[in-house]
């Protein structure tokens, strides 16, 4: 079966985020960018399904400026077969991303679509669920285990208070949580091979979607800093302070 994986280019998770002095956003100039960590897990899961003989073809798609092709190439080096880049220089919000992905789903007709549960920049946690709703598919969000069983997929989900397993009709959407797998690193020969794999570029207009932001960011600020308190000498002083000064025990 064909698996579609959506990946997003974001600030590298090791980079210290700095708010711009004019409060219009986060400073991304000359900052290291990378594939969103939850998307890496999505690619890894698709590659494992292919290694098990369940997935026959992995198509990776990314939306954003031309530089996104780096992340598509990374996914191709990890084992995806071909890439689709939807080129958009303006901000693409979750609902429009879901509409673009819906158009790709209609063209490619994958049996399974795997996405990260959220991107570490906007932290929205929306696109996978919106895509599932727009395409009329079931969804297994925050997945820690994915088992394809004939025309169904059983997804174990990380939920408040434990785990929950849902059984979904295929085609379905899965969004990844941290414990689903540990992504591999791309080997040098595979990075070289990835350069020759096919990569189609299209525009939102080609897919019949008009990008229209519904949310306006008025300002972005650094979080209020919490000031350091005092150091206590020993446990007895700590318990005394908690009881008599902070009055929390």
């Amino acid at each position: 079966m064909k698996v579609l994986v959506a990946v997003k280019r974001v600030i590298d998770y090791n980079v210290k985020v700095r708010v711009k002095p004019d409060n219009t956003g986060v400073d991304l100039a000359n900052v290291k960018m990378a594939m969103n960590p939850f998307c890496e897990i999505a690619v890894e899961e698709a590659v494992r399904l292919k290694e098990k003989g369940i997935a026959t073809e992995i198509v990776v798609v990314s939306i954003g400026p031309k530089a996104c092709q780096e992340q598509i190439r990374t996914a191709l080096a990890l084992g995806a077969d071909r890439g689709i880049h939807i080129e958009a220089d303006e901000e693409v919000q979750s609902l429009d991303a879901a509409k673009l992905l819906k158009a790709v789903v209609e063209k490619e007709e994958p049996k399974l679509v795997i996405l990260g549960k959220q991107s570490i920049d906007s932290d929205n946690n929306q696109t996978g669920q919106m895509l599932a709703a727009l395409t009329g598919m079931g969804q297994g969000t925050f997945a820690s285990e994915v088992v394809v069983d004939g025309e169904k997929v059983n997804v174990t989900r990380e939920v408040d208070g434990g785990l929950m397993t849902v059984s979904l009709n295929l085609p379905a959407v899965v969004t990844t949580d941290l414990r689903l797998n540990e992504p591999r690193y791309a080997s040098l020969p595979n990075i070289m091979k990835a350069k020759k794999k096919p990569l189609d570029v299209m525009s939102p207009a080609d897919l019949g979607v008009e990008i229209a932001a519904r949310l306006t960011t008025l300002k972005v600020e650094a979080p209020a800093a919490r000031s350091a308190g005092i150091k206590v000498a020993d446990v007895a002083e700590l318990v005394d302070k908690l009881k008599n000064e902070a009055k929390v025990i």
Partner: peptide, 14 residues
């Protein structure tokens, strides 16, 4: 909060 709480955004929904 965005960026894991490293920035705080004020957002208007239209």
């Amino acid at each position: 909060p965005i960026y894991a709480g490293n920035a705080i955004a004020t957002v208007k929904a239209t």
